[in-house]
Design a protein around this nucleic acid. Structure first.
Lengths: 154, 154
DNA sequence: GTTAATGCAAACGGTTTGCAGGGGT
DNA sequence: ACCCCTGCAAACCGTTTGCATTAAC
């Protein structure tokens, strides 16, 4: 489900988006965006920071925060508030949901178009107009279940 | 959907629960529990703190945090991480979901047993065993929609 | 009387902000 | 040349923690 684009395409897209928004396309913003779209997990600001330090040793953590906030305002990334601790960021803009493993904290994407297109129950409909719907499943992931099984029979 | 119990029943229930857990039933814990079960919103620790200051002027905010954490470990309340900012607490233990108004930040409970009992899609099933499922709807509540309409036609 | 819970204050960690210098347009 | 963005450091705010006192058992 990952959108594969060449770097050149990404840069051209970004240049256009930033031009429309009237803000500058800096090296840091490019790298943060690249790190976000190439991430196959749901990184925190600090995770992006650590990953970029190899490429840009002088980058500052608050720049990551500012950049990701800018990206969110432009609709390039979404914030996730799953674990209650730090904010996570997601560059996957396709409608999807999340499975969180309570043991290893891994987060997996779930696609469920039948749910996305289903009609909300009456009580929810009366409450207002829902623009978005997000499911958070919590449990134990397959790998952790295997590890737990292995512990039982040594 | 609110469970109505008399104070005496609540105290008896709590005494039993705390005895089993081997911890003390203090005045503060009683009042926090009472404030939680009588709340018809989804209060933060600070909200509970402000509400209790009238009854217990010397109560401290960190006591609220400790108490609510204890309650959560006992399964008496649940933590909510909806808005990304502060943690909210919910004494409604019935399986339910939430509608968050993006305009006024109001949070409404949604009951949707058909969803709760529905079979998860294959991809989610492969990821692991889901113990809980929670939907977060976001949009504009009915009241805010009316207010927005009123602004349009003065 | 023993032990755990409270209140206070200080620490903590993630995030935000004020400011001066540097880089994009 | 202009102004925005960055890096640095300090502030910020919700939450947690160490410690002495107080209250529940």
């Amino acid at each position: 489900m990952t959108i594969v684009t060449t770097d050149k395409q990404q840069v051209a897209q970004l240049k256009d988006i930033f031009k429309r928004a009237g803000i500058k396309l800096t090296h840091q913003r490019l790298e943060v965006y690249s790190a976000m779209t190439s991430a196959d997990d749901h990184p925190s600001a600090e995770t992006i920071y650590l990953r970029l330090q190899k490429k840009i040793p002088t980058i500052a953590l608050d720049t990551i925060y500012r950049t990701l906030t800018t990206f969110e305002e432009l609709g390039l990334v979404k914030k996730l508030h799953l674990m209650g601790e730090r904010t996570l960021f997601d560059a996957n803009l396709h409608q999807h949901h999340h499975f969180v493993c309570n043991r290893c904290q891994a987060i997996h994407d779930i696609y469920w178009p039948e749910f996305d297109n289903s009609v909300l129950p009456d009580p929810a409909d009366v409450m207002g107009l829902a623009h978005s719907r997000h499911i958070e499943l919590r449990g134990v992931c397959t790998r952790c279940m295997e590890e737990l099984d292995d512990q039982k029979k040594p």
